[in-house]
């Protein structure tokens, strides 16, 4: 009888060990969701239809994020991209409470000020729902949604996966290249790249 129970338990384990890979494919329309920013303002992704949306997963304690902020690389890109007013930049923090990178709304605003960052808004996602919807794996992990709400880029910010600040200058920035492709009406050449960095600190 005991073996029968063990056998049954084994089946239960086999049957339940089936997680699902939920990566959104490029070219699919991103389903609408409501997110809350560091000032407590709610945004629907659908509010941004007609604009391009750049999503940046971030965690200020992560060395790879620090690489891009200490070298002013991320801030420059934010400024460049949002300048014409047709692109929205959302920095997303999916760190769970108690984990690295988790900040309150006030904390997030203080970070933005001290780093001279210029995102349109900082989205707080402590439950990880938004992060898991996009299957965000690393900080930084970058996404671009085009004017029609279609996902057109996902992956790394650039092609140098080192945490050394000296590597930033010579790296090929995928996000900048993708924005140029979109501006020129071309399909994004490198639309799906391997994200690098720290793991997102999900709950």
């Amino acid at each position: 009888m005991k073996t029968l129970f063990t056998a049954t338990a084994a089946i239960a384990v086999l049957a339940f060990a089936a997680p699902i890979s939920a990566k959104i494919a490029n070219g699919t329309t991103v389903s609408d969701m409501t997110v809350t920013d560091s000032n407590g303002v709610q945004h629907n992704l659908s509010d941004f239809k007609g604009k391009r949306v750049v999503l940046e997963w971030t965690n200020d304690g992560c060395p790879y994020v620090q690489k891009h902020y200490n070298t002013n690389n991320m801030q420059t890109l934010q400024k460049e991209v949002t300048m014409d007013g047709d692109t929205v930049w959302l920095s997303v923090i999916s760190s769970a409470p108690g984990k690295q990178g988790y900040v309150s709304g006030e904390g997030a605003n203080a970070l933005t000020r001290s780093r001279g960052a210029e995102p349109t808004a900082v989205v707080l996602d402590p439950s990880g729902v938004m992060g898991k919807t996009f299957a965000a794996k690393t900080t930084p992990h970058m996404y671009i949604i085009d004017e029609s709400g279609t996902l057109v880029y996902q992956g790394a910010i650039d092609d140098n996966s080192s945490s050394r600040e000296s590597t930033v200058a010579s790296a090929n920035n995928y996000v900048r290249a993708a924005m140029a492709d979109l501006d020129a009406g071309r399909a994004v050449a490198n639309a799906d790249t391997a994200p690098y960095g720290c793991s997102v600190k999900y709950p």
Partner: peptide, 13 residues
Amino acid sequence: SIGLLAAAMGALL
């Protein structure tokens, strides 16, 4: 193997 054997035993039960 164990997987199938266990499943068959569980099913029998």
